[in-house]
Design a protein around this nucleic acid. Structure first.
Length: 274
DNA sequence: CCCAAGTCCTGGTTGC
DNA sequence: TGCAACCAGGACTTGG
C-alpha cells in the first residue's frame, strides 16, 4: 500500500535515476488508467522531453519534464515503478512503459500495477488539477495542531475517516492512520470534533513522528510495495497497530481488536486508545 | 465467498 | 424552504 513514506521513497530513488534522461518512446498498455483526452495527447506531449527533479504531494508523484510538461502518477494500491537499463521484458501487469535515452545509453521505466488502481495524468504548466485540492502534505506540509484542530472542529465523522480524507492532510493511508492513532492513544472511532486540544496535539505529533519513521525506514513492504530497484523497506517491522488484531498490545498487553471504519479494516487497542 | 486498498461517485441526512 | 456541507456506503480491481 503505497502511502506517503512509500511514495517518498520512490520519489527519492527516481531523483537519483531519471533527471537528464529523455523519453524516446511511450507505450500505454492500460488505456483506462488515463482520461481519454489526456491519453490522446500523451505521446505528443512527452516524447523527446527530458525528466527534471521529481516531486511529491501526499501520495501523488509529480514528474516534471522539460517544456513545463508534467506527469502526475498515483500508485493506487499495488502500483510500483521500476527503472532499469538493459532489455525490457514485458510483464502481464505492466501498465505503461517509457523507453529512455541519454547520450547513447538506453534504459526503461515501467509502471507495474496488478490491481489497476493506479492513475497517470499529463498536462502543461503544473501537476494535475486535483493535486491542488489536497490538504497540506502530512509530512512536510505547513500545518500544525491548531490548524488541524480547526479542520476537525464540529465534525462528527470518526477521526480515522478524516485522517484518510486527503483534503484535510495529504498522504495518510490505512497503515499510517492506524499507527498514528495508536501512538497518540486515540480510539479510531472517536467523532473527530470531540478531540480536545491535548488530543489533537498528541495526534499531530504522532503523525509527524510515524511518517518520519516510515520515510527513514524507506517505507513499509507489506503486500506488494517494493522500491524502484526491487529493494524493500523495513517499516513493517515497526508496526504496532496495523493488522495486529488478536495480538497483545505492545503497550498494555490487552488483546488488540479489529473493526471497520470508513470501509477500512481498523486495528486498535481498546484499553490504550480512548 | 470474503478480504485487502485509494479514490471517486451517489444518495441520504443534517443544520444553518 | 433552500442549499451547502457532511457522512456512509458502493464501485472499481484482482490475487490470496
Amino acid at each position: 500500500m503505497p502511502e506517503l513514506p512509500e511514495v517518498e521513497t520512490i520519489r527519492a530513488q527516481l531523483a537519483e535515476m531519471i533527471p537528464g534522461w529523455t523519453i524516446a518512446h511511450v507505450r500505454l498498455l492500460e488505456p483506462a488508467m488515463m482520461a481519454p483526452a489526456e491519453r490522446r495527447r500523451l505521446r505528443g506531449l512527452v516524447r523527446g522531453r527530458t525528466f527534471a527533479s521529481p516531486g511529491r504531494h501526499g501520495k501523488f508523484l509529480l514528474l516534471p519534464l522539460t517544456g513545463d510538461v508534467w506527469l502526475t502518477v498515483h500508485l493506487g494500491m499495488t502500483g510500483r515503478i521500476l527503472v532499469s537499463s538493459g532489455r525490457y521484458v514485458s510483464h502481464p501487469h505492466d501498465r505503461f512503459v517509457f523507453r529512455l535515452v541519454r547520450e547513447g545509453e538506453k534504459a526503461w521505466l515501467v509502471f507495474r500495477d496488478p490491481r489497476k488502481f493506479g492513475r497517470l495524468e499529463v498536462g502543461e504548466s503544473g501537476p494535475a488539477a486535483r493535486v491542488a485540492l489536497l490538504g497540506p502534505d502530512a509530512w512536510l506540509g505547513e500545518w500544525d495542531a491548531e490548524s488541524l484542530a480547526r479542520r476537525l472542529q464540529g465534525r462528527t465523522a470518526p477521526i480515522k475517516a478524516l485522517l484518510l480524507d486527503q483534503r484535510i492532510l495529504a498522504g495518510v493511508g490505512n497503515i499510517y492512520a492506524d499507527e498514528s492513532l495508536f501512538e497518540a492513544g486515540i480510539a479510531p472511532g472517536r467523532p473527530a470534533g470531540t478531540l480536545d486540544e491535548a488530543e489533537v496535539g498528541r495526534l499531530a505529533h504522532a503523525l509527524r513522528l510515524i511518517l518520519e519513521r516510515g520515510v527513514q525506514a524507506l517505507g513499509c513492504s507489506v503486500a506488494d510495495f517494493v522500491h524502484v530497484d526491487g529493494g524493500m523497506g523495513s517499516m513493517q517491522q515497526e508496526l504496532r497497530a496495523y493488522r495486529r488484531q488478536g495480538q497483545p498490545c505492545v503497550r498494555c498487553g490487552a488483546t488488540m481488536l479489529r473493526t471497520v471504519i470508513a470501509g477500512r479494516g481498523t486495528s486498535y487497542c481498546p484499553v490504550c486508545q480512548t
